[in-house]
């Protein structure tokens, strides 16, 4: 389990990351969300030991994370690029060897990854000779070289073509299935919605939301969609009901106390028919907009 505890980073008077704490449990995929300048990259750089925290601590398996732990962490920096003038296979092996993987093992893993991305015959080519999409696939392979025990990826999906997005998603899921914690940042909320077990929303350097999708959804106001076969205007006078919007026979309301639901059902049946009364589940982007507003 990766634990970030009270991480803070100041650049002069500017507080880029302010008391950020969250965990990435074994086998969990956590999405890291926030606008530009929210502090995601700074947080990840601190987690990787590339930037010293002004305060706080990064822990792995319950103790302070060491260089050896980080050596076994797959990391993808925000602005990516490998060596353009080196052979694809060679640089994958090089990166893995620096992470401490023996050469023959690294070669085996790299060959396997290239086969998986249908790049087996391009292993000897220089990276710059590959199309942009294929270069991205090599980049993905680079992140998981050296049998990492933790993945920290800064915007791994940005700029990927749809096929590469799926390849990346599959690869990440395989890692979490093996119990490896994965933390990645992204602007693509739909992807996070689809892939992640939990998400952390950062705004101006602070964590403004942290939890599973359902947990986050339940923290916002629970609105109800009401559909009747008659005019919905009467809802406005009902006690315990806040009416957000009325449009002819339908309305969006908030139930302020437990008895209100029963009251509405009874009154609606008296006046005609109640066609629908259901909770509106806010999308992640709605939650995001709400917490970062």
């Amino acid at each position: 389990m990766l634990e970030l505890d009270g991480l803070t980073r100041r650049f002069g008077d500017f507080v880029a990351v302010d008391d950020v704490s969250f965990t990435v449990p074994e086998g969990h995929m956590i999405g890291f969300v926030g606008g530009n300048g929210a502090g995601k990259t700074t947080t990840m750089r601190m987690a990787m030991g590339l930037l010293a925290p002004t305060a706080g601590e990064v822990r792995w398996a319950g103790r302070e994370m060491t260089r050896t732990d980080r050596r076994r962490t797959g990391y993808m920096p925000e602005e990516r690029g490998l060596y353009p003038k080196q052979g694809v296979l060679d640089q994958l092996v090089y990166l893995a060897r620096l992470k401490g993987q023996p050469e023959n093992e690294a070669r085996l893993q790299a060959t396997g990854l290239l086969e998986r991305f249908a790049l087996a015959d391009r292993g000897k080519d220089k990276l710059e000779k590959l199309s942009l999409g294929n270069q991205q696939r090599v980049q993905i392979a680079a992140a998981v070289m050296g049998q990492p025990q933790l993945l920290i990826l800064d915007e791994p999906f940005s700029g990927l073509d749809p096929v590469a997005v799926e390849a990346m998603a599959d690869l990440l899921r395989e890692h979490t299935a093996q119990g490896i914690p994965v933390l990645f940042s992204s602007h693509q909320l739909d992807l996070i919605d689809r892939l992640c077990d939990g998400l952390v929303i950062l705004n101006r350097g602070r964590v403004v939301a942290n939890g599973s999708r359902d947990e986050l959804r339940s923290t916002g106001r629970a609105l109800q969609q009401v559909r009747l076969d008659h005019d919905a205007g009467w809802l406005r006078g009902t006690p315990g009901v806040y009416v957000a919007d009325v449009d002819g026979t339908s309305a969006v309301i908030e139930l302020l106390d437990d008895g209100a639901r029963r009251l509405i059902v009874e009154e609606a049946m008296r006046r005609g028919n109640l066609l629908e009364l259901k909770e509106i589940r806010p999308s992640l982007s709605e939650i995001y907009r709400e917490v970062t507003a």
Binding site: R71, E78, E79, K99
Partner: peptide, 17 residues
């Protein structure tokens, strides 16, 4: 500067001193 510009240095720096 090649490593710095491409940020591969961050991968290297997280792997070795």
């Amino acid at each position: 500067v090649e490593e710095k510009q491409s940020r591969i240095v961050e991968i290297l720096a997280s792997a070795i001193p």
